[in-house]
């Protein structure tokens, strides 16, 4: 039911798609701020679907190493937020605290709260598998399941979490369509996923995480292993998905942050734990950064 409504909304909101075409045809080089300001900023709460995510004073440790210090950041429902910063600043660690993947590292420790729809996902008694169903994740390296076909990969989440879906054929098509892969694989759903290119595999992984209908999608440098063409396709996919869900994306590519995100947050570590330096609407962060360190980073003076 919900998804039908979403699809209806997508049709009526054709504006972002037009912007994309504009960007593509423009040949003059533009500054990051220009690229970012070209996006229509989504106000928090404009999309009633899904839940927002709020990090409250999140700290993270690996053993005795303090990796992340006191990050408080809101991810409003239906927005795209990019986390930027140099390597080792803790952005991936932060991302992994948001769906409780952090705890799989044996020495990991944590403090603070992460609220999904107002409820702390770290509260005792929380069913962590349900949390990860609601907060999906796409990893840096495409990781389709090698023993499964393309179709099985997309629907694997249902089987893994033992969810019954009435019409898996429709779901399969819908997820691949939303991930921008349907036209390329619709005739080869029974082939193994390893037959796909890296970019296609990554979009397959996106389709796979969509099949369990998450409200939030976390993406950990999803394009860092891909060529520009595949990167472009995935950015398109992200813009498309943002109409129905909340997205948090870690990226090293500031052009990408400017192109896809409504909000950006800059994290930095000066040898110690990573800290949140500044967060703002993306156009603002790139055109009028408040902090000198942000300005240095986004203008490429370090990092």
């Amino acid at each position: 039911m919900d998804d039908n409504q979403n699809l209806g909304q997508e049709d009526s909101q054709s504006k972002p798609g037009e912007e994309k075409k504009e960007m593509k045809t423009s040949t003059t080089p533009r500054s990051l701020a220009d690229v970012a300001s070209n996006r229509s900023i989504k106000e928090p709460g404009t999309n009633p679907l899904g839940s927002g995510l709020e990090a409250r004073g999140v700290h993270a440790w690996f053993g005795s190493k303090h990796a992340l210090k006191d990050v408080t950041l809101d991810f409003a429902a239906g927005t795209v937020t990019s986390l930027i910063g140099p390597s080792g600043c803790g952005k991936s660690t932060f991302l992994r605290t948001l769906n409780r993947m952090h705890e799989f590292i044996p020495t990991a420790a944590l403090a603070g709260e992460v609220l999904l729809g107002g409820k702390d996902i770290y509260a005792s008694g929380t069913d962590v598998t349900k949390i990860r169903l609601r907060i999906g994740m796409v990893f840096q390296k495409p990781n389709p399941f090698p023993s499964m076909t393309i179709g099985q990969n997309v629907l694997s989440g249902l089987k893994l979490a033992q969810i019954k879906a009435p019409n898996t054929d429709d779901l399969l098509e819908e997820c691949l369509e939303r991930a921008g892969l349907w036209s390329e694989v619709k005739d080869r759903l029974n082939e193994h996923a390893s037959a796909l290119s890296g970019g296609q595999q990554q979009r397959l992984c996106i389709a796979r995480s969509l099949a369990v209908r998450p409200e939030v999608l976390l993406m950990d440098e999803p394009c860092s292993a891909l060529d520009p063409g595949s990167t472009f396709r995935i950015e398109e996919t992200i813009s498309h998905l943002a109409k129905t869900m909340t997205i948090v994306i870690v990226t090293h590519n500031m052009q990408q942050a400017a192109r896809v995100s409504d909000y950006s947050a800059f994290l930095l570590s000066d040898g110690g734990p990573g800290e949140l330096i500044e967060s703002a609407p993306t156009s603002e962060l790139f055109s009028r950064p408040r902090d000198k360190r942000t300005e240095d980073y986004v203008t490429g003076r370090f990092g």
């Binding site: 769906n99 993947m101 799989f104 598998t129 349900k130 949390i131 990860r132 169903l133 999906g136 994740m137 990893f139 390296k141 990781n143 399941f145 090698p146 694997s156 989440g157 893994l160 979490a161 992984c205 796979r208 995480s209 369990v212």
Partner: peptide
């Protein structure tokens, strides 16, 4: 990564 992919899907 393969294990994490499974776990991140709520398994």
């Amino acid at each position: 990564e393969l294990r994490e992919a499974g776990l991140a899907l709520g398994a």
